[in-house]
Amino acid sequence: MKSHPSQEQLIDYLHGELAPGEDAAFLLHLEGCDDCRGRYEDEAHLTESLRSFARSTERELPAGVRAVIWSAVESSHRELGWAQRLAAWLRPAVAIPVAATLVVAAFVGYDSVAHRSGAPTIDAAYYLDDHAALTSAVPFNEGNTVPAALFTTESADGAQ
């Protein structure tokens, strides 16, 4: 690429929309042209500002939306028999938390008996996480895919 790219080409490049040969020639041009690199960085910065804005305004799905969808779906099946309605009610979102609550209750019951001695316990998550973190010392192993800090609560952040 001998001449300087147009603004349109810069934007297409930023979005990975140039043909492979053109893309490589473009990168080669950017390597040697400070002006075009500056223009490219301006465009990249605009994209980054948009993404930062999107992240900072990201919202959870309001619980009410979910409820309205299910109520619209279920009201359309009002004529159905009780068995089918029960099956619908026991869809995963309801059934899994119920099952999970039962499982957790069972384990909490078990462990409260097992640990009546008052001795401290160490959450198995800590062992699993520490093992994963240290495996990054092995070639071609990135260790933890997700840092524990994004999963655990403040009190469970682990070691002192």
Binding site: V104, A119, T121, I122, A124, A125
Partner: peptide
Amino acid sequence: KNAAADLSH
């Protein structure tokens, strides 16, 4: 220190 692994989760 008699600290067992907590597998309750």
